[in-house]
């Protein structure tokens, strides 16, 4: 499985992993790349889980689960989502209990700003509470 290979690398990190879920693979992967770049470390613990396996727009429980295991470093996984089925799918996976790494948390945050805050916090060694809090604070960044 994809999760086990890179999971080993991440496992040594002991950092919180961040999963970005969007209806679009491009959005998820680009936001992941943006957040990783801003985190300023070469191996920021963030992965995108966007779209469906065939590249169409949508939400894939399988891609999310796989991404979460891939980025899991043993310190928990924070999931940030865009909307609609992305929110519902992650909630359903969490309710299932055995699909996602433990602990996994759906974070109430805007996707782009929240991802940057979460990844910076995670790369800096923050625990799951700290990563979630950083992401949630992004709602308070006033732009005007």
């Amino acid at each position: 499985m994809a999760g086990s290979t890179s999971g080993e690398t991440a496992g040594a990190s002991g950092r919180v992993g961040v999963v970005l879920v969007s209806h679009s693979a491009q959005v998820a992967d680009s936001v992941a790349a943006l957040a990783a770049a801003l985190a300023g470390v070469p191996d920021a613990p963030v992965v995108g889980a966007g779209g469906l396996p065939d590249g169409e727009l949508g939400t894939s429980a399988d891609l999310i689960t796989e991404a979460a295991h891939r980025v899991d470093g043993g310190a928990g996984v924070a999931l940030l989502v865009d909307l609609g089925s992305a929110v519902l799918t992650v909630k359903a996976l969490l309710a299932e209990g055995d699909e996602l790494p433990e602990p996994a948390r759906l974070v109430n945050a805007p996707l782009v700003e929240g991802a940057i805050a979460a990844v910076v916090a995670a790369a800096g060694g923050g625990d799951l509470d700290a990563v979630a809090a950083a992401a949630e604070e992004a709602y308070d960044y006033r732009k005007v």
Partner: peptide, 17 residues
């Protein structure tokens, strides 16, 4: 469980649940 993992839209987690 199958619906959650295959539908790809909001109806997956909803009907799955």
């Amino acid at each position: 469980r199958t619906l959650v993992s295959t539908v790809g839209g909001a109806s997956g987690p909803l009907y799955g649940t």
